[in-house]
């Protein structure tokens, strides 16, 4: 699979809503944040961008939303070049950033009204739109209260509502559910799915593999400024051979020792260790468990627990980046 093949701009009706070719971005100190990113997001779909800390997800979003400029490469949103005609792009996109960019000293309604004004909306049409969004996100009752008194989940909904005020064609959600409790997260997922069903194109970056698995039709995994895998979640999962075996060790062991033990076993592949968690793939998970346990026991490595699972996006992620996904770790802000 040629991951970095160039993709040509072919936007317009039925074409790509977002198309990026060979984006490169370097920061002072020769930090190569993006090293030739190419993306193609079909109109009306949800696209998930996954990656570890500082991989380049946020940088990609910033370039596509005209906040930042690429050193080289081109990007189009709805067929419009983001570097050449940023104002046209800005009218077509909504941005919901990482940190919940709502004005916490203003009321919910004031936030939405200001956002509408900035897009040149006003009068009764804006008031109607604001009421509609408040109702849609269940914020009508809280609308007159100062936002800093709201819950995190409500603030995040207001953030999304602000990004939708001008009825954008493409919505960028940069880690929309980070820091939300499970209930608020499920709520927001449902809303994102409804928006997509209405034909909105959504590009989503996320800390949560489950989120991408649940929401995104297409996923790309980005690592060190490059796209290392792309496809539907199912395609990516089916590339993996067999089941995932996860062994929790009782004590941490010397690097590579435990995986070296599994390397020798038939029907067990791709062993890797991270902390006290040993992972491997097995052609037949259930039948491999006794062999794995016996081998570890023979090597004097204590085992606390073993689980066998069908492949998940976590496994895809691990396979392509060589690291386990840690949702609690913070994405570098740029």
């Amino acid at each position: 699979m040629n991951l970095d093949r160039p993709q040509h701009a072919g936007a317009g009706p039925g074409g790509a809503a977002i198309n990026a070719v060979d984006l490169v971005k370097t920061y002072p100190g020769d930090v190569r944040a993006l090293d030739g990113i190419g993306l193609n997001v079909e109109a009306g779909t949800i696209f998930g961008l996954l990656g570890p800390n500082g991989a380049g997800k946020s940088t990609t979003v910033k370039i596509l939303t005209t906040l930042s400029r690429a050193d080289s490469g081109t990007a189009h949103v709805m067929g419009v070049d983001v570097a050449r005609q940023p104002d046209r792009v800005r009218r077509m996109i909504g941005l919901v950033g990482q940190h919940g960019a709502v004005d916490s000293e203003a009321t919910g309604r004031e936030n939405l009204i200001l956002q509408g004004h900035l897009y040149g909306m006003g009068g009764a049409a804006l008031r109607r739109r604001v009421d509609e969004l408040l109702a849609r996100f269940g914020l009508t009752d809280a609308a007159g209260r100062i936002v800093k008194t709201w819950s995190g989940g409500m603030q995040r909904k207001l953030d999304v509502a602000s990004g939708l005020i001008h009825q954008p064609r493409v919505l960028f959600l940069d880690e929309p559910t980070t820091g939300l409790d499970p209930e608020a997260r499920a709520d927001l997922w449902a809303e994102v799915q409804r928006l997509s069903a209405e034909g909105l194109t959504i590009l989503l970056t996320t800390h949560y593999l489950e989120e991408a698995d649940r929401l995104a039709g297409q996923v790309a995994i980005i690592d060190r400024g490059k796209i290392v895998a792309r496809g539907t979640p199912d395609e990516l999962k089916s590339e993996l051979r067999g089941d995932a075996i996860v062994v929790e060790l009782r004590d941490s062991v010397r690097d590579g020792h435990a995986s070296a033990v599994l390397e020798l076993l038939d029907g067990v592949h791709d062993p890797s260790i991270s902390g006290r968690t040993l992972r491997a793939r097995a052609d037949d998970g259930a039948r491999s468990v006794p062999t794995v346990l016996a081998a570890l026991d023979a090597a004097g490595i204590g085992v606390a627990s073993v689980t066998v699972a069908r492949p998940s996006l976590d496994d895809v992620y691990l396979r392509h980046t060589g690291r386990a996904y840690r949702p609690e770790s913070q994405e570098a802000t740029r």
């Binding site: 906040l67 800005r90 956002q115």
Partner: peptide, 9 residues
Amino acid sequence: IMDRLLATP
């Protein structure tokens, strides 16, 4: 909030 402002036209 600045990023949000800069993403508007």
